[in-house]
Amino acid sequence: MEKMIAGKTIAVNEEGYLTDFNQWDRNVAEEIAKENEVEMSDKHWKVIEYLQKEHQNQVPLSIRKIGKSNVVDIKEFYELFPNGPLKISTKIAGIPKPASCL
């Protein structure tokens, strides 16, 4: 599937997650964030960068791990991305939706 995001044609899956990380940039992230009622701040970007790094190192993401990341605690993570933190933050980060239940 393809979708126009921030003036670019971006390959996404049926849930709207990027399928090619090379197409990701900050403008794309900003627009996905806006669609999900998230306004990006420095703190948001720090979390996004952390998620991308973890994904690059093939670490499976979970709420528990993020709570121990020293980047953000769980309460803050929920405040930054209220309607499903892991689901929405990974979408903004341009990485796949984690399959974890934890």
Binding site: I63, R64, K65, G67, D73, I74, K75, Y78, L102
Partner: peptide, 17 residues
Amino acid sequence: IDMPDIHEFLDILVASG
């Protein structure tokens, strides 16, 4: 499988709202 123990799990639940 990275499942927290009961006490930690309770803390996670509270932090999650």
